[in-house]
Amino acid sequence: MTETLTIGKALNLGLRKALEDDAKVMLMGEDIGKLGGVFRITDGLQKDFGEDRVVDTPLAEAGILGTAVGLTMRGYRPVCEIQFDGFVFPAYNQIVTQVAKIHARSRGKLPMPIVIRIPFGGGIGAVEHHSESPEAYFAHTAGLKVVAVSNPVDAYWGIQQAIAHPDPIVFLEPKRRYWEKAKVDRDATPEPLFASRVVRGGDDLTLLAYGPMVKTALQAAQAAADEGRSLEVVDLRTISPLDLEPVYESVRRTGRCVVVHEAPLTLGLGAEIAARVTETCFHSLEAPVLRVGGYDTPYPPSKLEEEYLPDLDRVLDAVDRSMGF
């Protein structure tokens, strides 16, 4: 069955499928019941699966994650919704000191199949704490896996794969792209979750992105093509573990690499990727790996977010600089 879905609707259908397929799956979060979540990702699910499986929690993120740990020990598979990226921090202690480490501490006796869904990134004109890109904190934490989807197909399959996966996964949803549409074939065989994908072929430079920046990267590649430059765009899809083999293969051909993310530059994913690409492809590189990211500042008030966020022009500027080496 192929239909056109938004990322939001694809997530909703993916969650529905996961609830149908496994009676142990349960959703937990603030306002996810009657309201269907502030982005309506869980719309209608409490009505159909009941209050025990789609749980409106008290207003306490540490509580959501902490109780998810206990539920997991009873065989449940909690899918926790954090309302906005900036509100994950009350739960940060549970995520980093408990969720991430219990598998290792128990030497595998206590798996932690918890999914932490977080709408992330900016671009929606919101007030403070609603536009953060906290992925590096989680990617830096051993024991967690981090997925960042960019399109409805990956949203639909990815959320189901994440829920079925035995390890805890921070599942990042590009909130400003929730309304982007694409055709989704719900009978197809999904691509593996932890694999990057070349989404546009090219010869001159390898452009890497994930989550909301994939669209920006593709637009930049189109604009570059109009100027006679051929960019290869890779959607990383998963940022921990990173699947860089396709990237190395690409960079060996193009000799140039630019990484784009909304998160601040310093110690962001771009830094790790630049290090690995440099270590692995040093002799193929014609230019240093360049990064385009948010500035090393707090996320600004919304009137300034367009200047803060990487956009087509800033990506093309980096492409120019890379080509100029």
Binding site: E30, D31, G33, K34, L35, V38, D56, P58, L59
Partner: peptide, 10 residues
């Protein structure tokens, strides 16, 4: 209320 969540949940 806390958004949609009524007081008895808290």
């Amino acid at each position: 209320y806390a958004i949609s969540v009524p007081i008895e949940r808290q």
